[in-house]
Design a protein around this nucleic acid. Structure first.
Lengths: 302, 302
DNA sequence: ACGAAGCAAATGTCCAGGACAAATTTGCGA
DNA sequence: TCGCAAATTTGTCCTGGACATTTGCTTCGT
């Protein structure tokens, strides 16, 4: 068997830790401690990759790598999130429980029932409340479950995929024709979470905006071109909590300089919630604020 | 203005060229030739990033970097694809023209009309023929247009996004309940094209398979977990032509060893078309072959 | 006792330049 | 013209050093 272990590129792909980080951790903390092949290149056994992914998850939850890498694997599994959790304001105990039920469908890998249940909620609540009272809190719940290790990546992917389908379907059934303002929705490279964008799109579309969904991961220069070509009034980006916070202000500033001045730049998602202001960029800390921003734009443009 | 230029990480993000490549090109070919900031770190002006993206595109089309980087920018724009284009077998001239019309809607940035036109085709052709005779050839056309620089990235994104919506919608309206075999559909990290997966899913779902769509970019270890948790019979991966070919065989072998032996591993998409065989992996060179593979599986399992 | 300011440790990212294997092209002989 | 071997091209990996920035801790002033 040739294939016993991951090379450094594979580990980077699978963990999201850069080659530089993998090497410097090894140098400083003695972990990971990959074997070497004939050419002296690192070969990471699967268990180490597993542990690295656990470490990454705990880091996203607020832990420091120095501590984590000095801790034996067994203890790591027991660690709780460190970043203070903002108290989950759910619309009542029963609502919270219902959402938990939805999650347990996912955890039971019963996609069919999940879709059905969500479809029902959509029909019952209407799109606006469905987005605000079901999808958004559900996404947050999944996020915290992920931080606490109560949910697997593939379960989260299934959740995302099925939920996005529902939203897209709902959006598609909206009447077209209205057209102001023209809003481009997308995300920057390395930011692949599109659920937040879709929630925003649903709300914007309901308010009669013309949404231009470009999917995720658009290079900055392309976003600028797209804004020109589509004669967009607003460019909306989404950043998840997982996106490296420190890069966001620079990215936004850079895109701001690339965009024509009469195009507004909005940024939303969990990643911008605890962010300082950026000149020329409107930060949307919540879905409600998105709607406020839209109303404000309308006010400004008669 | 602080923000005049991209640092090396930003260029990597926006061009898809690794830091190593950017540095070694500079060393060997003298391009790119970024400025340096106070700390001696590279600052790439926007034009150089632009040119790098052009070079990248031409490389994907079969050119060699050594030549490209020695060529002045103006000439680059005139370069044609080098990789021999397999003759586009379309089902007749009129069909080809119709598809061109669809593309020109995208190029006119008229998403609404595009959706409408596609919806009509879907209704007229039915899902199977829609996938095989419309979506698949259209995707190929967009691919070649991209290679030849006749289409912008953001136009391609819009095309993908709108087309995926249509397919998902069509899939959602299929009757549920049937359930064999259980097929996981996903892609590996760094492979973010999901359109091929969706085409496969549409065909598989129509044939009565239970499809478990996990979206794109699943770490290998997670794919293995998901296969176990969902009791999958088959794992299907998709690789686009853009995915670094050389990595694919290793990836597949690695995943093969991670998967239980009674789970089949299929790989499809443009990236596997000119690939040597991999032990224990079924390579699907076309959508038709996917259906054949499914029939074969059914044959084997009574 | 408590908050602010300053210092020290921790951490990620960048750099240079060397090495080498895999892929591709070139050159040569049949 | 075809096939094979040598030469070149190209991407990726390596080491080890440097440094800016963030985080944590300590001390000082109120």
């Amino acid at each position: 068997m040739v294939n016993t272990g991951f090379n450094i590129a594979a580990v980077e792909r699978d963990t999201g830790l850069s080659k530089d980080v993998l090497r410097v951790w090894e140098r400083r903390y003695g972990f990971p401690a990959p074997a070497r092949d004939d050419h002296g290149e690192r070969i990471y056994p699967a268990e180490q990759v597993e542990r690295l992914r656990l470490v990454k998850r705990l880091m996203d939850a607020g832990h420091r790598p120095g501590k984590l890498l000095a801790t034996p694997t067994e203890e790591l599994n027991a660690l709780a999130p460190r970043r203070p959790q903002p108290p989950q304001a759910v619309a009542g105990a029963s609502a919270g429980e219902e959402l938990d039920d939805l999650i347990s469908l996912i955890k039971r890998h019963d996609g069919g029932s999940y879709q059905q249940a969500m479809q029902q909620r959509l029909a019952r609540q209407g799109l606006v409340r469905f987005v605000q009272d079901t999808v958004a809190p559900l996404t947050r719940l999944v996020g915290t479950a992920w931080e606490e290790g109560r949910i697997e990546v593939f379960e989260e992917h299934l959740f995302t995929e099925l939920t996005m389908r529902l939203l897209r379907q709902a959006i598609a059934s909206l009447p077209g024709g209205k057209r102001s303002p023209r809003i481009i929705l997308t995300s920057v490279p390395d930011e692949l979470h599109g659920l937040g964008l879709l929630m925003a799109e649903a709300l914007f579309a309901l308010e009669g905006a013309e949404c231009i969904p470009l999917g995720t991961q658009m290079p900055l220069l392309e976003i600028a071109s797209a804004a020109g070509a589509h004669r967009a009034d607003i460019v909306t980006l989404s950043f998840s909590v997982a996106f490296p916070q420190r890069q966001i202000p620079g990215l936004l500033q850079q895109l701001r300089t690339l965009l024509s001045a009469d195009v507004e730049l909005w940024a939303g998602g969990g990643g911008v919630r605890r962010l300082p202001e950026v000149a020329g960029v409107k930060l949307l800390a919540s879905l409600e604020q998105s709607l406020d921003a839209l109303a404000a734009w309308r006010g400004k443009h008669t």
